[in-house]
Design a protein around this nucleic acid. Structure first.
Length: 554
RNA sequence: UGGGGAAUCGUCUAAUGGUAGGACAGCGGCCUUUGGAGCCGUAUAUCCAGGUUCGAAUCCUGGUUCCCCAGCCA
């Protein structure tokens, strides 16, 4: 039974009756970028908790900074949450829905002598704030009269001042050890077009002034956020208390970090803007749209989110765990197909010239209901170049001169000769087959150690296959070796485009988004770039490869 | 250094005074018409030092290390 500290807190609330047994959470993205796997953890947490306790989850866009926010992001975020499998019903809210209420509450605080208009410059405010060890100084404007503050604030709202000339600040304590309590800014002047409110406002609330009250308005019981907001909680509680409104409980948890990737929206944006990747949905990106294009399933992501748990330790999860859940899901559901990524021609010298036959191939041995399919076999085939070695080492079970292997679902073949070009490269194999082994079984009980995948040369379709690897070579981007920066550890081999791959004919007809297991290679998904003329497949995740592992170990 | 947090196998996470458990990764084996999948087995952890207790990951004292905060970002 998976448990976590948040559930314990909720259980305590339910026992004490603090929220009358109610559990109402929210997922509050800022629409300034695409959602990533770290957001998925939060989405699964917030929606999952509500489901478990019979509560509700709101979607609320924290759109308080019009300079960075766009409608494109709003649309993408909604699509990604739905894809992940969650539904916010009709509870789609925006912090900007509350601008009017926030404004009224600001006036209330001014009247109560708890907020004031400051006319210091941004630099001066920083200087007056003090440091970690020294208290701040009070602004000379801190003791303006209520009337003056009211008048100035109204003028701010009416657009009578330029950006940066004034701000509204809470009057709390310039000597507080918690810098967030040193008269935090509540409103700044921004003559900017907002994606939703247009030019209705030229003062915009700071996140710290908007967030807690937005939760309060929506009746959020458990406001779950990441660790860096822990020091802001006293401020949110202060606002709510001064206003005398419903008080949610904020609970902080550690955000997800994953090896070999980044979760910073700012840096992901930079990768997009500088063309390091093809866009937010590049299959190498940790974004949900990128992972979707890569072939990830929502189920795998949800299982992963469940397995990593929730705690307050800063942590770095091994991406291998994510891949484990992906393979687990894909293994059960993927139809098997044969695709030769690096083709080597094989001629079956004793196969009747010009003949084609069809062998039955199992679609998914994990799922008998998936049935079988006919696959064309002929005297000219392709196999994987790596499946032949002229001078095989000890544990190599595949084709070599004089050796017999099974062509999956078809026949046993024996390599008689390797044909080479002038440079000495093997360009073709001459083999013989045993007609008695049709289907891949030998009536005399003869065993072979290797089973290869293959395609018939005359029937195969050409395809482009995009092989992906981690975007960064270093596992821990937050703790790089001396002298390295995150841009310097980009993996130059994160994308390899393979052309001239030979795939089963049926694969050419597959539609974007369809997933397959390419036998002995990995899981692949049809890319949206795919056309009937040029099918394109993305590597989702490779199969575990113990042979490759043995080779690495030497 | 002020304020706020956190320390359990290599990694993530359980156990709140009573056998330190699980998952991933690792290693070994079985099985296999995917060197896949599956199955079985195995090694590895309580930040340190004291104290309380029959008994401490858990309680107390002192220390160490790491993370967050000095945006008119969120």
């Amino acid at each position: 039974m998976p448990t976590n500290f948040i559930k314990k807190i909720i259980d305590e609330h339910n026992e004490s009756g603090r929220f009358g047994g109610r559990v109402h959470t929210r997922f509050p993205p800022e629409p300034n970028g695409y959602l990533h796997i770290g957001h998925a953890k939060s989405i699964c947490l917030n929606f999952g908790l509500a489901q478990e306790y019979g509560g509700l989850t709101n979607l609320r866009f924290d759109d308080t900074n019009p300079i960075k926010e766009e409608q494109e992001y709003i649309d993408a975020i909604k699509e990604d949450i739905r894809w992940l499998g969650f539904d916010w019903g009709d509870r789609e809210f925006y912090a900007s829905d509350y601008f009017e209420q926030l404004y009224k509450w600001a006036i209330q605080l001014i009247k109560d002598g708890k907020a004031y208009v400051d006319s210091l410059s941004a630099d001066e405010i920083r200087e007056y704030r003090g440091t970690l060890t020294e208290p701040g100084k009070e602004s000379p404007y801190r003791n303006r009269s209520v009337e003056e503050n009211l008048a100035l604030f109204e003028q701010m709202k009416n657009g009578e001042f330029p950006d940066g000339s004034h701000v509204l600040r809470a009057k709390i304590d310039m000597a507080s050890g918690n810098l967030n309590m040193r008269d935090p800014v509540m409103y700044r002047i921004l003559h900017a077009e907002h994606p939703r409110t247009g030019s209705a406002w030229c003062i915009y609330p700071m996140y710290d002034w908007a967030h807690g009250q937005s939760d309060s308005i929506e009746g959020i019981t458990h406001s779950i956020c990441t660790l860096e907001f822990e020091a802001h909680r006293p401020l949110y509680d202060w606002f709510v208390e001064q206003l005398g409104i419903f008080a949610p409980q904020q609970i902080e948890f550690a955000r997800l970090n994953l090896t070999h990737t980044l979760m910073s929206k700012r840096k992901l944006l930079q990768l997009v803007n500088e063309g390091v990747v093809r866009g937010w949905d590049d299959p190498r990106m940790p974004t949900l749209s990128g992972m979707r294009r890569r072939g990830y399933t929502p189920e795998a992501i949800r299982d992963f989110a469940e397995r990593i748990g929730v705690a307050k330790n800063d942590s770095l999860v091994d991406v291998a765990l994510l891949e484990h859940h992906l393979r687990q899901d894909l293994n059960k559901r993927s139809l098997r197909r044969m695709a030769v990524l690096d083709p080597l021609k094989v001629v079956i010298t004793n196969y009747p010239a010009g003949q084609t036959e069809y062998v039955d191939a199992v679609n998914n041995q994990e799922d008998p209901a998936a049935g079988t399919r006919p696959v064309p076999f002929s005297g000219e085939l392709y196999i994987e170049r790596a499946d032949f070695m002229e001078n095989p080492p000890k544990k190599f079970f595949r084709l070599a001169p004089g050796r017999e292997v099974r062509l999956m679902h078809a026949y046993y073949v024996t390599c008689q000769e390797a044909i080479k070009d002038e440079a000495g490269n093997v360009v073709e194999l001459r083999c013989t087959y045993d007609p008695a082994t049709r289907g891949g079984d030998s009536p005399d009980g003869r065993k072979v150690k290797g089973t290869l995948h293959w395609v018939s040369a005359a029937h195969a379709a050409d395809a482009e296959v995009r092989q992906y690897d981690y975007l960064f070579t270093e596992p821990d981007l937050s703790n790089l070796p001396e002298g390295k920066t995150w841009l310097s550890v980009l993996n130059p081999e994160s994308l390899k485009v393979l052309t001239g791959c030979k795939v089963e004919p049926a694969l050419a007809q597959a539609a974007p988004g369809e997933r397959f297991q390419f036998l002995r290679n990995g899981y692949y998904v049809v890319d949206p770039d795919s056309t009937a003329d040029r099918p394109v497949f993305n590597l989702t995740v490779s199969l575990r490869d113990t042979w490759a592992k043995m080779q690495r170990k030497g």
